[in-house]
Design a protein around this nucleic acid. Structure first.
Length: 568
RNA sequence: UGCCCGAUGGUGUAAUUGGCAACACGGAAGAUUCUGAUUCUUUUAUUCUAGGUUCAAGUCCUAGUCGGGCAGCCA
């Protein structure tokens, strides 16, 4: 009912759309786009794994198409074979699908290499492109600086015929790598450096993951991207802010080629606190073994988050929540974590698991008796049903749930105190057994109140302040539990002490492995997300967990207001 | 001493395009609770600076401040 009310409420409110969506909606009214639906593309370079920053772009591009009945292509920007690999092509497709999106068409910039080449010849013939023999270093010198204009290349005024001939030679493999380039003839004095006769083609002998050894010249990003968009009839080419300066060039190519001209719109890429996002740094973490791989659950990669147990729904909700703007902002990781909790709370079945055990003996409970207690699987979802959990004389509880010298506000077990065992009985702590030497608490001897069985209609309605989870010692199954924490200690890992880099900020305690005791219902589990009651959300590790050796990853802990209180 | 872009509560984004600054998250307080979870209620706090235009400016103009991007044959 409240759901309906909320919806009705929402209908009355103006829908909030980001600035890109606004522009798109307006553009669609233009005569140029008459009768057209929005068409976007997600254009990753296959030189690394996708991360949460890409998820923002994916949600934006695919989301826009989805929302307005348009289309979104997945296009690999594979114009630089020296850095690109099939492995990445595969993982990117898997990640996009996993996020819940379907591309209209799967394309590659390399699909357009022939067309691009024809267009280059067209520009040469129009006197708008020339072959340049300057070395890379000379090219840089001639380009000028941010404050000083460049000067024309001595090869700038070659004749059309000569350019045609030389470009053919480049293409035919008659030039050494780096010996020549094809450049657009624009303006060496332009205040925008991208317009100072940008390189269109470089000579590069490198095996391409799709075209093999067919080409020895490869187009630059700027020369490929806009035309690829144009070929695919993209209406809106959405990219990150660093390409803002490239927009005039994007436009120049489309205009001078006289081809359909999509509109490029830029937005600020995502920054997350306590993590790094650059491909170079992520690669370094992997290569140097600071993490176990691209899919290490501590990585901000999509595959890392997937293995960690984050759900596509939560990632999409997160991307929705952070909005889209041109302001370069940093989102606090807790926003991500809260999105994850929000979804998991709805879908994750509850189970009981003890991470740090303390033995409890119920002295007045019959020696060999075992009761099966009914436990609700998910209070948020009645259809999830219930299960039975064995209860017996010897139990394991969480060590943190007992305190010998407890403060007033401590609602859990203390000497002489009472607590409810979740789905069990109320018990009273009668005796604390300690190691005479170390003083360590070895076990608790308690008595249970047989009149207080959970769910029993005849039970006496007693209330106690606290409820704790437990497992039956004899029935519990062991599992390895990996409790993850943030990979970096500092909010912005890029800021490192003098002479050091981001690695100095690595959290040495970002993974903590423990042996946990789980209720037996988890015995045959192979996959899935669970809430370990009162502890956190956990998932079966997709890589290392086996029937003989269960491994769980902590996705995210539950909110803990007790811990927060203690901090004060 | 170039060009381009940006600046709204603690954080992130809105503001019907010049008309009462709002939404979410977080924080705080409380209620409910057999999870110190969830849920619910209440509450907190905002337009970078200085001028100008206007009945009216977060929005327009001018200047400044601060932040970011750009000098790959990377994307």
């Amino acid at each position: 009912m409240s759901h309906v009310a909320r919806q009705a409420d929402g209908d009355e409110k103006r829908e909030r759309v980001n600035f890109i969506e606004q522009e798109v909606l307006q553009d669609l009214q233009l005569p140029k786009l008459a009768g057209r639906k929005v068409a976007t593309r997600f254009p990753p370079e296959p030189n690394g794994y996708l991360h949460i920053g890409h998820a923002k772009s994916i949600c934006l591009n695919f989301g826009l198409a989805e929302k307005y009945g348009g289309t979104c292509n997945l296009r690999f920007d594979d114009t630089n074979p020296s850095k690109e690999e099939q492995e990445y092509v595969d993982s990117i497709q898997e990640d996009v699908r996993w996020l819940g999106f379907q591309w209209n068409e799967l394309r590659y910039a390399s699909d357009y290499f022939d067309q691009l080449c024809d267009w280059a010849i067209q520009l040469i013939k129009a006197g708008k492109a020339y072959v340049c023999d300057l070395t890379a270093e000379q090219t840089r010198e001639y380009r000028g600086t941010l404050t000083a204009p460049g000067k024309n290349s001595p090869f700038r005024e070659r004749t059309v015929d000569e350019n045609l001939k030389l470009f053919a030679a480049m293409k035919a493999g008659e030039c050494a790598d780096g010996a020549r380039t094809l450049r657009a003839k624009i303006d060496m004095a332009a205040s925008n450096i991208n317009l100072r006769d940008p390189v269109m083609y470089r000579v590069l002998r490198s095996h391409h993951h799709r075209t093999g050894d067919k080409w020895c010249i490869y187009p630059m990003y700027d020369w490929a991207h806009g035309q690829s968009d144009s070929i695919e009839s993209i209406t809106h080419s959405i990219c990150t802010l660093e390409f803002e300066d490239h927009r005039p060039l994007y436009n120049w190519y489309c205009e001078n080629l006289g081809i359909y001209h999509p509109r490029q719109i830029e937005f600020a890429r995502l920054n997350l606190s306590y993590t790094v996002m650059s491909k170079r740094k992520l690669l370094q973490l992997v290569k140097e073994g600071h993490v176990s791989g691209w899919d290490d659950p501590r990585m901000p990669t999509i595959c890392g988050m997937r293995r960690r147990g984050y759900t596509p729904e939560s990632l999409r909700a997160f991307c929705d929540r952070i909005g889209v703007a041109k302001f370069y902002s940093t989102i606090d990781v807790t926003v991500l974590e809260n999105s994850v909790r929000e979804h998991l709370n709805l879908v994750a079945n509850r189970v009981m698991a003890v991470l740090n055990p303390l033995k409890v003996v119920l002295t007045n409970y019959p020696q060999d008796q075992v009761e099966l207690m009914d436990a609700i699987n998910n209070p948020e979802d009645a259809s999830a049903g219930s299960r039975q959990v064995p209860f017996s004389r010897e139990l394991l509880i969480e060590r943190d749930d007992f305190m010998e010298d407890a403060p007033r506000k401590f609602f859990r077990l203390k000497p002489g105190g009472e607590v409810r065992l979740r789905y069990g009985y109320i018990i009273k702590c009668d005796e604390v057994v300690k190691d005479p030497v170390s003083g360590e608490v070895l076990e608790l001897r308690c008595s249970y109140d047989p009149e207080t069985r959970s769910g029993d209609e005849n039970a006496v309605p007693r209330k106690v302040k606290g409820t704790i989870h437990w497992v039956s010692a004899a029935h519990a199954i062991k599992a390895e539990v990996r409790q993850y924490d943030r990979l970096f200690l500092t909010e912005n890992p890029e800021v490192a002490p003098e002479g050091e880099n981001f690695l100095a900020n690595l959290n040495p305690d970002s993974i903590r492995v423990a042996t946990a005791y789980l209720e037996p219902s988890l015995k045959e589990v192979k996959q899935g997300h669970f809430q370990f009651e009162r502890t956190g959300y956990f998932c079966v590790d997709s890589v290392d967990s086996t029937a003989e050796h269960l491994v769980f990853n902590r996705i995210v802990p539950l909110r803990d207001s007790w811990a927060k209180m203690q901090e004060k």
